[in-house]
Each structure stands twice: as C-alpha cells, then as structure tokens.
Design a protein around this nucleic acid. Structure first.
Lengths: 233, 233
DNA sequence: CCATGTGAATTAATTCACAGCT
DNA sequence: AGCTGTGAATTAATTCACATGG
C-alpha cells in the first residue's frame, strides 16, 4: 500500500471552481439538490450532510460532495453544509438568484397550463408574456398574462427583457418560430415540441418531449418484467 | 412498399442484444431516433443512414450505429437502415408496439393539458382514465376522459389494465398518491411533481420537473455569457 | 467520532479505426 | 464509391480511499 502525499492547498476565498469542468450531468443534479435543500430551509433545518442529501435523492454521499466541490468549497468538515448558504450558492450557480422573464409561445392547452402553473413562483422564473398566431386567442388572459399576436414578439422581448422562451407550438411551426425567437434575441428555449431544433450558437435549447419521457417509462417497465433493476427517479 | 426482410438472413432470430448492456443514456436516444424515423416514414423515405440520422439529431454516425447495434443488427452495409423496419424495431425495443393505457392522477391545469394533448396518438400511449380528489372535478370530462374520484383508482386500474400513471398532484400529496398507485399495481410513474418519490422495486419512475428544466436553461445561458459553447437540444 | 474535499482507481460512455458487405 | 458493425483506444463519470478540519 502506497503512502499518499499531502496536497496541502490553502482555501480559495469563496466559490472558486477548483478544477473539474462544469459537466452537464452534474448540473442536472444541482437542481435536485436545490429543490431538496429548499424544502429543508422551509422546515427550518440549518445544516445538512452529503449523506442525508444523497439518501433523499438516491445518490451516494461521495457523488454529492464531488458535485458541490467542483463549484467551490462550501460546507464544513464535521458539520456539513449550511442550508441557507447552500440554497444561495446553488441559486447563484444555476443563475436563479435573479428572476428570469419567460415568454410562452404557443397558447394551446399545454401553453395555457404553463401560464397557470404555480410551481414557478419563488424559483426564479416568471411568465412575463404569451404569444399565439391565432387571432381568437389574442387578448385573452391566462394566469394573469395577456396573449399577444406573434407580430409583437420581437418588440415585447426587448421591452420586457425576456431572455427565455417556452415553445409549445405545433410541430410544423416550431423551427420557424424558434428562428424568430432567436432573431428577437432570446437566449434559451425550453422546447416541448417533438422536433429537434436548430439554433445559432449562443442560444441554449432544453428539450422536453412528453412522448420521449413516456417511452423511457415504457422501456423500463418492459425491462423490469424480464429482469429486476429498480427505477430512476 | 413494406417488405419485411425475406430470406437471406444468417442473423440471430430477431433483435438479439449482441453484447453491451442496455445503457440508460442509449435508451433516451432511441426515442429520438424513433421520433425522427417516423417523420421519414411519413414522407415516404425508405432508407436512412447512420450519418443522416446523426446529422438530424446532432450526434455522430458512430454513436448512432453503436446505439442501434447493441439491440441487434438491423441495417445493411452499403445501404443503411430500412425506415419501416427501423420504426418497428425501435417500437418493439421501447415497448410501444402495443398501446399502454395511462392514468392521469391530479386534474389541475397540467393534468388537464395532458388529457387534451394530441401528441400521444399513434405513439403507443392512451390516456384511459383520470382521477382527482376534488369532488368538484369528478364527473367532468377532459380530452374525452371522465374524471373519477380517487376511491375508484384501484378498481379502474385493474379493470382498464392501466399500467402507467402520470402524476400531477400537489407536492404534499405526491408520495401518498404514489403509494396508492403502487398498491393498485401500476408499473411506471411519469412524475411531474417536484418531489423525489420512493417506490418499491419493480415500479419505474421518470421525473419531469419543469423548474429543473428551466434551471438547466438558466445555467446554460449564464455559462454561454462567459464562454461560448453551443447548446443541447 | 463525524463530515468534507480530493487524488487515484475504477467503471461507463464515446470516439477511432478498420474489416467486411453492397 | 458508400455503409454497417465492432474491437481497441480514448475520454467522461463515478466510486474508492484517505488526509484533514470540526
């Protein structure tokens, strides 16, 4: 057995990405950490350990520490992480310490549901505008947001400082609308349309295809019929 | 058209997992392959190459071939994959060659939107029942499905052979309802509630947290502000 | 003692390179 | 020519092991 050497590194001021690159899988877990730690904050808990966090989310304690440590070192040996601090840190990393104005484009049943969705409040996202090409929908109000015609899109995006869009238009229109959003200066698109979008560099797309999600379930259920692994929440 | 592989096959019977294990990331991509290949089928295209597939989805051709090959070898050197055949194979792998009855549990705005969502038709999923604990909603019809009281859940699940559930209840009720679903014999849960569910082995959970998705966007947009990687559709 | 942070080892996933079929 | 399928090499992600602080 070899003798490890001491690395001996003094502590960086605050929140310095030590080494490893951001890593896309890590970021997804950061959201889950935040979600869980926020519930702890509501309950008045003041500290949490990587083991408790991992247990609640189905991860190992090492995984949790690795994820957190690559964005800086918060958390104290022997104690754990300070809940309030961790909430702040995670929000800052994810960029939800400020509120993002979001446009909902396509006011079908899904778009309307998102406009009315209560889960965004306090999470850093605010549906700030809605757009639809159907004249019959323009002027109507859903979740407190008045639907505007598509012709207003570029103007409203600039005026209301909207940087994110939720896309819930019919598949045939999706790429066209995405192009318009990009030209209007939108920086990210949450895409519910079952189509792979092409966007210029500098614009992010996160796809959410409900059929794809159900297919994952279908696969897992079929697979567990033969063999027996767990699941994947 | 549509001539299944006739004679000439010294291959394995059908869809034999050659070597590699199923791999969870692979399955997500299979859904994307299916989605794209279905659009090709509608357009009447008869073959597609791994390169074309990859190009359309932002993947390398090698990646596509690796993914497909680990479920058996369909596709002919020098030609590519037969579109009709590939659709059938992918559906069989994902388990959507038969129709799954799905229960929507929790008929808030999101649940209603999912009941009305048109995108499930022809994809192997059918909203077959809806449940809500609010007496005011019971008896109402959304997307052709009548809302039933929670007390009917176990009975309806058995009677209608429902094996998948979409969970869109308030966060406080989520784990309780999930427990009831599991006792009723449900095999998979598509979880829209921002809570990590605990379920017995043999039940699959696929989480879809809209806030988490937006946080991914937020992170990506913030990150591209400093440096300049692309996106991630 | 318990808990974090991290280099080293391990395992998973992707890409490379090429044999072989059309 | 073009294309698939796959071992080998590479790169990413996770887990292990342990030094160090509370």
């Amino acid at each position: 057995m070899s003798l490890a050497m001491s690395s001996k590194q003094s502590r960086q001021p605050t929140g310095s990405p030590r080494r490893t690159p951001p890593a896309s899988l890590t970021v997804k877990r950061l959201s889950l950490y935040l979600r869980y730690v926020e519930t702890l904050a509501e309950k008045g808990r003041s500290t949490v350990s990587s083991r408790q966090l991992g247990k609640a989310l189905g991860l190992t304690d090492t995984q949790v520490r690795k994820d957190l440590s690559c964005f800086g070192q918060f958390g104290r040996p022997g104690v754990g992480y300070h809940v309030g601090d961790l909430v702040g840190r995670l929000r800052a990393i994810l960029g939800t310490d400020k509120v993002w104005n979001v446009a909902v484009v396509g006011v079908g049943s899904l778009g309307r549901a998102l406009l009315r969705y209560k889960g965004f409040v306090g999470k850093g996202f605010r549906p700030a505008a809605a757009f639809d090409s159907a004249a019959g929908k323009v002027g109507k109000k859903f979740g407190g947001v008045v639907v505007q015609p598509m012709s207003e899109l570029a103007g409203a995006v600039k005026k209301s400082r909207i940087r994110l869009a939720v896309l819930t238009v019919p598949a045939k229109a999706a790429q066209d609308v995405a192009d318009r959003l990009c030209r209007a200066g939108i920086r990210g698109i949450l895409n519910f349309v079952p189509v792979t979008l092409t966007v210029p560099a500098g614009v992010a797309v996160v796809p959410v295809d409900l059929v794809v999600q159900l297919e994952q379930l279908s696969y897992l259920v079929n697979a567990s019929g033969k063999k027996g692994p767990g699941s994947g929440d």
